[in-house]
């Protein structure tokens, strides 16, 4: 964690959204985000939490640079090499698992050895299959492998473990922690599962209802991923109180 701080501001994520408005189907303007500010130091894992439909995915899309239509400022960490896992796997159905992963590699890395990554994610025996033949859990793993294959400085994950059975989700969480730790990746993850958030995060951001801003920011003590169930429960209860206070005060 120390060298992360020493890396300074250059490698940090800085996101300031003063306003994000989108035009609804009936023509009315809906303000989704207002005055949302968040920062992450290099190598940190931040988790965005909040009620469904509050704008978590919108925030993630802005951080990814996919939505330039907002007022504010976004500076991605490092060189800005991005790995992203969408809510749906978003694989090309007409390309095999391996082709899907290699497609996103920059040309100079086209032939890089991915066997370590593929072994870690348990994909080695599925490389020649098409996404239509995979279960959702496997397809998610392919999407995660694709995000890590580019060796990102900046990783965005949008509810990557939702609708998976608990055993698979737990294993994927372990793999995510191993991969982000190894590569020193600045990560922003969206979830609505508080326990999952506490288990994974260095820093938690709670979003309010629309128009969303951050109502509570909480730094968690290291080490991430190794917190005991008792610690997690204690933090969760504490957060609940803080959240209630934050709501009461404004």
């Amino acid at each position: 964690m120390n060298d992360a701080r020493n890396a300074g501001d250059r490698d940090a994520l800085e996101l300031r959204i003063s306003s994000k408005v989108y035009c609804a189907a009936d023509g009315t303007a809906v303000e989704v985000l207002r005055g949302l500010e968040l920062g992450l130091q290099a190598g940190q894992l931040g988790v965005l939490l909040g009620p469904s439909g509050c704008g978590k995915t919108t925030t993630l899309r802005i951080a990814a640079g996919l939505d330039p239509d907002f007022s504010g400022h976004c500076r991605p960490p490092g060189s800005g090499r991005l790995g992203i896992v969408f809510q749906e796997p978003r694989l090309l159905p007409w390309r095999t698992v391996e082709q899907n992963i290699r497609l996103v590699l920059p040309p100079e890395q086209a032939d890089v050895d991915l066997s370590d990554l593929l072994d870690t994610l348990g994909l080695s025996s599925h490389l020649a299959r098409y996404p239509g033949e995979l279960s959702l859990g496997l397809a998610r793993r392919v999407a995660i492998a694709r995000a890590f294959a580019v060796r990102p400085d900046f990783l965005l994950l949008d509810e990557p473990f939702v609708s998976l059975d608990e055993a698979t989700a737990a294993r994927l969480r372990e793999e995510l922690l191993a991969l982000t730790g190894r590569g020193h990746v600045t990560t922003l993850l969206v979830t609505h599962d508080v326990e999952e958030a506490i288990r994974l995060a260095d820093r938690l951001f709670f979003l309010s209802d629309r128009p969303a801003r951050i109502v509570l920011e909480r730094c968690l003590p290291p080490p991430r991923g190794a917190r005991s169930p008792a610690t997690i429960a204690a933090i969760r209860d504490e957060l609940r109180e803080q959240l209630a206070d934050a709501k009461a005060s404004g």
Partner: peptide, 21 residues
């Protein structure tokens, strides 16, 4: 549009997008 977004996020070259997506 989801695949197009994926291609933009990973900054795929225009020819790659045309051919594979």
């Amino acid at each position: 549009p989801g695949l197009d977004e994926m291609a933009r996020a990973y900054r795929l070259a225009p020819l790659t997008r045309l051919r594979h997506i």
